[in-house]
Amino acid sequence: MKKFIAVKNAKLRSEAGGGAIQELARAMLASGLVDRVLTFAKGLDEEDLLPAFIDKADDVGNMALNAYAPYSLSRFVRDYGEGKLAVIGRTCDIRALLELRKRNGLNEADLLTVGIACSETPDRQNCLRCEYRVPFMADLSCVLAEDGTLVEATGDKGAQALGTGSFEELSPSKEIFDAEAARQVALAEQAAAFELQHASPAERLAYWFGQFDKCIKCFGCRNSCPLCYCKDCVLEADRGLVRGGEIAPARLFHLTRLAHVADSCLNCGQCEAACPMGIPISKLYHMLNKELSAVFGFTPGINADLPPLFGFDEKEKSDDSTLFGGR
């Protein structure tokens, strides 16, 4: 059931969403429901938005809601998350957390997810592919409006979190739902318009090999991808694929990473945002994921379904011709 809420204290309502998210963060910390909140906060100036762990209820005023910065909160949970933690993030952050959870990359019991729908239809190139605006897969799914927040608890955990805050329930105007529906349509249209024009296979191959040849092997795409979570990345030297003292050849580097994550690519665009050579990597991953999705019937980051390439069966484990076989 969706509720439209704002913080009870009318003085604190000037923030987007009627101050409800700050109140939620404050109350979750103050009540001890969580020890820390991971979210975006203001850095050196208003436009410097950085991931930050907030552990004091008094510090929630520094939160930066609903603004885009190309850092994946999920990676910070994976690498630095501990204790009772709430993540207040964008839909792509929440979806990445869901996929990491499936791969045992997170401590499920202690993580609470609060998703906030990006408020504008994003026009930055890297977000044009986005298909999931509203974070319906989060424990609390939020849409910010001018004077209040549309919030839905998707389970007991979300409801418990919402119960810690002092909110006033308002009645949302019809315009809010109309605007929300219009945004959804605009986003779907934008995502559809982004789908690659299908050139011939030979043209596509030439295009992508040309792109791969620009790669300087900074590993930024791998480092930024929430799904690339292996501790021993096969693309680094002396791991069976690339010899010590060498770097992976341009095309193999990309084809290997593609083979490892394309089935679960979230289309989050972090890899492309980090690429100093301007290679439109996410476009390729997204395109391939679309095709694999149709084959396997799997969409990453929206429910608990396991990805198609989740494990090795007995035959693969004992077969010397597979990379890990016979070891």
């Binding site: 300087i216 092997k217 930024g220 480092n223 945002a273 100093p276």
Partner: peptide, 17 residues
């Protein structure tokens, strides 16, 4: 990588990483 920095706008090379 630091997105707000005007020199590299959120990108680094292998050495930076």
């Amino acid at each position: 990588p630091w997105e707000r920095h005007p020199i590299n706008e959120g990108k680094l090379c292998l050495k930076g990483w």
